[in-house]
């Protein structure tokens, strides 16, 4: 037993030394670094765009920082070094614009909230109108974009479905999560019977959740703006990144992930 302990310790030590040895070598090439701050819902898409971007720009390393739009905004306000900011709603980007921390922005994608239920949910939730039947519902806190959209669309639902519908839904809300991924996790694990997330998040977990579309008259569409930071260390590369996201290839990846075509995309429109 004791010998085994030594072997494990030795192996761990060796592995650590190896890793340390590799670090400076990787740094030796000194590639240019592009720091992209992006809303959590953009994870898969921006990862793909980054792989493509690094292939096309030799010696450029894209550093991606994913978090809630509000968290990223606070980080930027407190001097985080970033080149590009892609937000899940216009509010946070406008706040930065007011402080002259970013220049003009462009809408690069649109996203729509949907209802998700676990794939093997035994209940009879098939249409949006059935939502109050779900026993445990999880949504976002009203202070984060997905939660704000949820509030709006529930308010919109009062007209066609009546007050009872909205009250029925609110009575079954068990948790208000701090970001959309946490809502997704709770439903994917079957802990909640229904949740409201962006369509793109729902599609990223297709094998675990079933999507129920929200009727057009009720739903709200989220607009995703992107901008170069005024203090960007790599403004040129930052503009290239935005062009890549708005370009054909970037938009193809976005569509594949479930985003809707954005007005500023592909055609190079002027600043909004």
């Amino acid at each position: 037993m004791r010998r085994l302990f030594f072997v494990v310790a030795l192996a761990t030590g060796l592995a650590a030394t190896l890793c340390l040895g590799l670090l400076p070598r990787a740094r030796a090439a000194e590639p240019k670094e592009l720091a992209v701050f992006a809303a959590a819902s953009l994870r898969e898409v921006f990862q793909k765009v980054a792989d493509d971007f690094e292939k096309k720009h030799a010696n450029v390393k894209v550093r991606l920082n994913f978090a809630g739009s509000q968290e990223l905004r606070v980080q930027i306000e407190h001097g985080a070094r970033a080149d590009v900011f892609a937000s899940a709603d216009t509010k946070h980007l406008q706040a930065l614009q007011k402080q002259n921390l970013v220049a003009g922005s462009k809408i690069f994608a649109r996203n729509e909230p949907v209802v998700i239920v676990p794939v093997n949910y035994p209940g009879r939730l098939a249409r949006f109108a059935d939502l109050p039947k779900a026993e445990r519902i999880v949504v976002g806190v009203p202070e984060v974009p997905i939660g704000a959209y949820t509030e709006t669309l529930l308010a919109n639902s009062e007209k066609p479905y009546g007050k009872k519908f909205r009250e029925g839904v609110v009575a079954h809300i068990r948790s208000r999560e701090l970001n959309v991924r946490q809502v997704l996790t709770k439903v994917a694990l079957g802990e909640a019977d229904a949740g409201i997330v962006y369509k793109t998040d729902a599609l990223s977990a297709k094998d675990k959740v079933t999507v129920i579309e929200i009727p057009d008259g009720i739903n709200v569409i989220a607009e995703y703006p992107i901008a170069v930071l005024s203090a960007a260390p790599q403004p040129g590369l930052a503009r290239d990144w935005i062009a890549a996201v708005l370009g054909e290839e970037g938009q193809r990846v976005l569509r594949a992930a479930g985003f809707r075509q954005a007005p500023d995309a592909a055609t190079d429109s002027t600043k909004r």
Binding site: V138, R174, S175, R176, E177, Q182, K186
Partner: peptide, 12 residues
């Protein structure tokens, strides 16, 4: 707590 219990004012 956030993962296991959720976030609900007054409850969790």
């Amino acid at each position: 707590t956030l993962m296991f219990a959720g976030n609900m004012t007054g409850k969790t």
